[in-house]
Amino acid sequence: MTSSGKNIIQVENLTVGYDETVIVEDVSFNVKEGEIFVILGGSGSGKSTLLKAMIGLLRPLAGRTLIDGEDLCAADEKGQLRILKKIGVMYQSGALFGSMTLSENLRLPLEEFTDLPREARNLISCLKLNLVGLKGYENYMPSEISGGMKKRAAIARAMVLDPRILFLDEPAAGLDPITQAEVDQLVLSLARNLGITFIIVTHELPSIYAVADRLIMLDKSSRKIIAEGDPHYLRDHSDNPRVRRFFRREADPGSV
């Protein structure tokens, strides 16, 4: 692990919700640089909502998130841009722009934020697509490729500017096991070779075992973090029965 021990993300007493409904209440955790950090929880536990609050799409009801020491919600426009350049986000549905080819999707941030020559931008977009196994699909429209391919293209777009932090919302959902394993490999090699910090929202157990350095688990009923630590350790030694059941894929007693 290349973790240098520095906290690159600090979440402090964050409460998130929509209007009156509080979804995640008063959670705090830190993510270290170079770490692969997983946010885990059952459906409806607020994983994606927490992620949205961390990347500034949702204003928290209380508390704050520091990305590399800066609060996105409190920063001015210039500061926000500076912070946003450090992060890349892959959304659950991919969110590729439907009117552009894959290559154009990737080149858009390069055109906006760098002074690289045109052929450099082309090559970079091609290399990133190659990295996620999509070489040869540069000129396809998002509507012409499968769901798994869209997901990989979205990861490629999220990292086209080489951000230091990548947020992935359900990268493995809807992919076949082989592609899932490939995405896991990709995450691992990017983290180890480039020192990118990953924050991954997922509930795919094989992925978690393969990549996670550390995880937090959210709980729907208590709206808090009910477990934090290494997945292998939590599976065997957690004192919370819900956490152990989650890792062993057992239904809640009396739920059916």
């Binding site: 290559s103 082309n122 290399l127 190659n130 990295l131 070489k135 070779n193």
Partner: peptide
Amino acid sequence: ELNQLLNLYAPPTFEKPPPE
């Protein structure tokens, strides 16, 4: 580590895409 990265991005078999 940069060499690894180079191979990760573009293994020796990698060919430049044809122009648009």
